[in-house]
């Protein structure tokens, strides 16, 4: 257990601050205060928030769009009418994916 008095601890901390390497001077003579890094972080957060908003718009639209498509009274999604007019005896289809169980 440490037996150093509180004053001594404060002295060590002050010494450490004193011996910290100062930031290298910028070519333009101004002092680098770290503000650039902060503004980059803020910009990154704004971009992330905007990305979240765009993603949320997709999820919202994906949820609401199918529910607004017109359906018949039994809940079926119906195609537009198509006229089938052929001289033969039958018209057949296996082309609808739905018919392949």
């Amino acid at each position: 257990m440490s037996t150093l008095p509180d004053d001594s601890k404060a002295g060590i901390e002050t010494e450490a601050r004193r011996t910290r390497t100062p930031p290298a001077p910028r070519p333009d003579g101004r002092t680098d205060t770290g503000g650039g890094r902060n503004s980059q972080w803020a910009a990154a957060k704004t971009v992330a928030s905007a990305t979240l908003v765009v993603f949320a718009l997709f999820v919202t639209w994906g949820g609401i769009a199918p529910l607004t498509e017109p359906r018949d009274t039994d809940g079926y999604y119906m195609s537009d009418p198509v006229v089938v007019d052929r001289p033969s005896a039958a018209v057949v289809t296996t082309d609808m994916d739905l018919l392949r169980g």
Partner: peptide
């Protein structure tokens, strides 16, 4: 819908030639 290969058929009820119909297809 059931498993397997299925065919949908449109015909005149008496089987005669000349099929004419206005159709709509739907899915539940």
């Amino acid at each position: 819908i059931q498993r397997g290969d299925w065919t949908a058929v449109i015909m005149n009820t008496d089987g005669s030639n000349g099929v004419r119909a206005e159709l709509a297809f739907g899915a539940l």
